[in-house]
Structure formats: C-alpha cells, structure tokens
Write a protein that binds this DNA or RNA. Structure first.
Length: 594
RNA sequence: GCUGGCGUAGCACAGUCGGUAGUGCGUCGCAUUGGUAGUGCGGAGGUCACCAGUUCGAUUCUGGUCGCCAGCUCCA
C-alpha cells in the first residue's frame, strides 16, 4: 500500500474509530453522528453530543480510541437495501437524511467495526483494527460546524484529529504546525512593526512606518507597471449618496455589508433614506468617469485603475488580521472594452498578473467560475466570454492545470480567481478578473461604434494582488518577514562602530539616500553589537558596518541577511551598484558576493 | 452571526482555592566594553479589557459588553 492509499484508507478508518469511541463514551442513545471525512492532515467527524467536548476530554477520547484498536476487531462490509439502511440507522437523523438523498440506483454499503458499531460508508477500509495500531493520531481541536455547511441548519461539534502513518510523521507535522505559527503575519506584523489593530476600529488596520514603507514600495511598482500597460489612475469619493448604489444594484444586493453615515445628524429622519454609504467597491466611480464624455470605439479599451480605500462591514467572527479586514485598498481597475476586445484584454491582464506574482516569486492557483443558472444577458456573449477565459487559462496555466467551478460565476459574468494559501494552509482569494455585462446596462453606458451606432461596452473588473492588505499578509508569511530587497521597509542599515565614525556613516547614509535607497542608521553611543542585533532582528537586507578602516579606505563592511558571512572591503561604489542592481532586477534573493 | 477559547507592564508570559500582583525581554539611568546578534548594577512602568452584581473586600466568583484567536458560514 503506498502512502496515498494509506492516508486515504487509514484516516478514513480512524474516523470510524473516533465515532465508535465517542459513542462508547457518551452512550449510543445520546449521540447523533454525521459525517467523518479525511482532510489534508488527518480527518474530522461531526457529532451532536449531550454536552460540549472540552480539551480535558481529548485524552479520554484518545485513550478510548487506542483501547478500541487493541480489541483487534474485524471490519465487515455489507451491501444493504435502502430499507435495511434506514432501519440500521433509525434514530440517526443525519444518516437518515444522507440515505434518503442517495440516488435510487446507488449501491448502499455499511461497514461494521466489531459487531456493535456500524457506519454508512462507501469504503474501502482496513480489514482489522489491529492494522491501525502502528499509526499515530492526536486530537487537534473541537469546534462548531454547520450540518451540510448551512448556517440555517443544525450546528454540530466537529472533532478534528491529526493522523499520520507513524509517530515520526505526526511529530514532524506538529513541528510544521509550530513553524507555521511562527510565520503568522499577525505575530510577525507586531514584531516587525508593520501594522496594528486598535480595538476602536476593528478590522481597520493602522499601517506603521515600516508597514507603510512596504506598502508604498509595492504600490510604486504596481503603478509603474499599470502605467506602462495603458492604465490611467483615478480616485473617487469614499462616501456617496445612496442613489449611486441603488443604480449600481449594490443597495439591493450588498446593503448589509455597507457602512452607512447619516447625512444630517440633527435630522436623521428615515435613516436609510438620508445616508451616505462608504463605498464597498470602486466600480461606480470608474463608470462615472467613463460617462463624463461620449466615448468612441477607438477610445477603447479604457482602463481606470484605483487604490481608493473601500469599507465592507463583516460579521464579527469573520475578521482575521490583514487577511480579512473591514477597510482596505484593492489594487483595482475597471477596464471598458468592446466585445471583440475581451480576449486580448484578459490576456493583457494575465500578463500583468504574471509580472506581479513573478516579482514576488509567487505562484497562485487559478480558478475559472462559469455561467450560473440565473445568469443575465446574452447566451452567445457568455459563451464567447467563457471561451476567451478558458483559452487564456489553457495558454498560461496549461489545459487542466486550473480548477473550473461550474455555475459559480457572478450573475453578471464569468470570472477567474487567483488564490494563495497562508501559513496554516488556508486558501485566500487574491486577484480576480471578472467580466461584467450588468453594470454597463444598469448605468446605460455607451460608446459610438465605427458605424455611428451606440453600443454598450463590456466592463472588466479586476484586481491582481486582491487587496494590498491581504497581499501583505500573504507575503509576510511567505517570506517570514524577510522581504526581498526591492520591497523591504528598510533596505540598508548603517552602523558606525564608534561615535568618531558617525561622520563617515552619515556620509554613506546621504549617498545611499540620494540614490533612493531606503536607509536607516544608528548613531547612538552604544555598543555596535546592540545596533547590529536590532537591525538584524528587523530583517534588514544589508547592515553596513563602518569603522576607522572603512572611513580610511572609503569602503563598507556588509552583513547579509540570512548569512553569517561578512563582505569586507566593499567600496561605496560597489555597494551602490549592488543596491541598484537588486532594486532594478526585483531579485528575490540577496546578493552575497560582490 | 454560530461553537469553543482567550484578554494581567511596550512585548512574551507567571500568579492570586477572594485580602489591589510577579519573571524575562524591552525602556530609562550609571558604569564598563568597543570590529560584527555585548556585560554589570540600579530605577521607572500595571485603576489585572470595560460595565454591573455577589461580598466587609473582586484582578480572582457570577452576568453583560467590547476586542482578539481557531473552526463553521460569508468574502479581496
């Protein structure tokens, strides 16, 4: 049995053992057991139990599981009729529902573990519990989960368990989890003084000087790139009267996620009729700008990018560091094209995405979401749009190298989503490329075509990073806050050995600063070791130490981040060239040699 | 929003079976050191998240509020 099979069969079998253990502990009549699938680090099982499972119960459950395995019971598979299945699981509401939902012609199988525990299951499973004795497992956590992922339905207790082939693999995995915690951007953001959340503004980050420098470095790169691709940056009001959002349709679909501000505090009246809304999206602003003039077919594509702040009110439990905030800056753009330009425009957007992700050495997953049942617009245009998106994905990702979420597109158009995973393996949507046939209609947008007739442009809503906030969260975890030279909050730190070297140190700082290097220094009369420690803690790419020797020879002595090596006798000119090269090449790695 | 957990000095954490709190790092001061993640001594810093209740007395117990974390749901 290879590892893949092992994981699949053993984890699944262990899930049955967990269910059996829980039933033995709480009593069969007190337990409703639902489903227990495997996941990437083990498995979980959902239950309704007479009381909440706490951390103190973990050991009891684990011991019971071991005890059950030691019984070395045989596992037997049995094919049953629907009636038999319903009778076996009478009183088990979730199992009953599952059985009733099975297609008529489905072969129903159940698995017995010993003769007192049975579970509805397709299998396959191990033959005897003794085969599980060599595996290693550990209860990870317990939390609430909704039956069938529906927040309107029963909430169950989900017990998560790590499960691996042996103790060594489990231990390795636990070490990995610990390592992941070290990468957590919330932790690093605090240590590295990047950002801060105050409880007076939940989900609305403060960017600290270092974090803001990082954001601006990314922003500068982003702006230049878009300018070269024919984008024109705009900025619009953060607050607008409700009317704008009624026209766009957001008032109907998105009102609950919008922060509202009374227009007149003295005379609030019917609140919702007298409010400004903080914009949750930038699209209407771009449309307003488009509509300032009558546009010609020859003007298209028109690309209005923006980094305005948007606000989205989220439910309390949904906030999560920089990954999920209530105030953020999308690296947004709304591109207006003719229908015949869709393919080329998407291709250009993908090439921008490649340039941006490439600059960070990142590779994101791509997913295509296609026409939903309640689509609006012309079927032929949809087909053309989906074909265009597919063709681009086939070309850039390779056919079959991306996921397709059938029917998952927005009602106004299909989309491509770019996804990244965080240190804990959670998937986050970053960029999105959405074709939109709806808003141009809602706002009655037009351009005059070559035949003199008015036609409606197609709108492409796109973000590549997704939002600067989420993206910074992801790269913080990815680089463990050791950012590439070109985005690092500080690129060089200058450390004079003694106060008498301050003058030379300052000269060096001025030279680098003039060249645009983000440089800091520490001229205090304290031990140089302390200064070096501080700068290294902040993961500054290069710490340049200067003493009498360097001052005499016009050189610097470099400490390279991530290496204990020192580069001595580097001339200022050489160092300048090094900085320049790293900046311009957007190199991910630092140079450790001159 | 739901389930569970958490909130003690700038940070990381102890602790109080109810009698107003400690350690390490950092900070400040002094001394020392001075070529690559220093050393020694001393000082300051906390209405123990907030609001009620119980009590002679609450940081500790109870209830509520706010915030944070994990998971679910929802999203960039």
């Amino acid at each position: 049995m290879d590892r893949e099979e092992f994981l699949s069969v053993y984890r699944h079998s262990l899930a049955h053992i967990l269910a059996k253990a829980v039933i033995e502990i709480f009593g069969k009549e007190n337990v409703q057991y639902a489903i227990g699938p495997q996941i990437n680090d083990g498995f979980y099982y959902d239950f309704v139990l007479p009381r909440t499972v706490t951390n103190e119960d973990f050991k009891t459950i684990e011991d019971k599981m071991s005890e059950i395995m030691k019984r070395k019971e045989d596992w037997t598979r049995k094919e049953v009729t629907r009636e038999e299945a319903l009778s076996i699981f009478s009183g088990q509401k979730f199992k009953t529902e599952l059985i009733n939902d099975l297609p008529v012609d489905e072969l129903i199988t159940v698995y017995y573990t010993g003769d007192d525990f049975v579970d509805l299951c397709r299998g396959p499973h191990i033959d005897n519990s003794s085969l599980l004795l060599s595996t290693a497992f550990q209860i990870k956590s317990v939390s609430g989960a909704y039956w069938r992922g529906d927040s309107e339905r029963d909430q169950l207790q989900r017990i998560y368990v790590y499960a691996f082939p042996d103790k060594k693999a489990l231990k390795e995995h636990l070490a990995l989890v610990k390592e992941a915690m070290e990468r957590d951007h919330k932790k690093l953001g605090k240590e590295m003084e990047l950002f801060y959340f105050d409880e007076t503004a939940p989900g609305m980050p403060y960017f600290l000087p270092r974090g803001w420098r990082l954001l601006n470095a990314i922003l500068y790169f982003w702006r230049e790139l878009h300018r070269k691709h024919g984008y024109q940056e705009i900025s619009g009001p953060v607050l607008s009267k409700k009317d704008l959002w009624v026209t766009s349709g957001h008032w109907g679909h998105y009102k609950d996620n919008m922060f509202l501000v009374p227009m007149d505090r003295e005379n609030v009246g019917d609140f919702e009729d007298n409010v400004y809304a903080l914009k949750p999206m930038n699209c209407p602003n771009a449309i307003k700008v488009y509509q300032l003039k009558m546009r010609s077919y020859a003007d298209l594509p028109l690309r209005f990018n923006t980094v305005d702040v948007v606000h989205r009110k989220e439910k309390s439990g949904e906030l999560n560091g920089l990954f999920r905030v209530q105030m953020f800056r999308q690296d947004d753009s709304h591109n207006f094209v003719r229908e015949d330009q869709i393919g080329d425009e998407i291709a250009d957007i993908m090439s921008i995405a490649n340039e941006i992700y490439g600059a960070f050495g990142l590779k994101c997953g791509m997913e295509l979401s296609t026409r939903p049942d309640d689509y609006m617009g012309d079927l032929e245009v949809w087909n053309k749009a989906e074909a265009a998106l597919k063709e681009i994905l086939d070309k850039t990702q390779g056919a079959g190298n991306y996921e397709i979420n059938e029917g998952d597109g927005a009602f106004y158009g299909p989309k491509i989503d770019l996804k990244m995973t965080d240190s804990l393996g959670r998937e986050w949507q970053m960029g999105t490329i959405q074709l939109d046939f709806q808003l141009p209609l809602n706002f009655d947008m037009k351009y005059i075509d070559s035949d003199g007739k008015a036609r409606r442009p197609v709108m492409i809503h796109r973000a590549i990073l997704g939002s600067f906030e989420r993206f910074i969260g992801i790269i913080t975890e990815n680089f463990k806050a050791s950012f590439p030279y070109w985005v690092a909050p500080e690129q060089v730190a200058v450390v004079p050995i003694r106060p008498e070297n301050n003058e030379y140190a300052q000269k060096l700082v001025d030279i680098l600063d003039k060249q645009g290097v983000r440089v800091v220094s520490d001229m205090r009369d304290i031990n140089m070791k302390e200064k070096i420690k501080e700068f290294k803690t902040m993961r500054i790419p290069y710490v340049a130490v200067v003493g009498n020797q360097e001052a005499e020879n016009g050189t610097v002595s470099l400490n390279v981040r991530g290496s204990n090596k020192q580069l001595r006798d580097v001339t200022i000119e050489q160092f300048k060239a090094l900085c320049c090269e790293l900046q311009e090449s957007h190199s991910i790695e630092l140079k450790e040699e001159i």
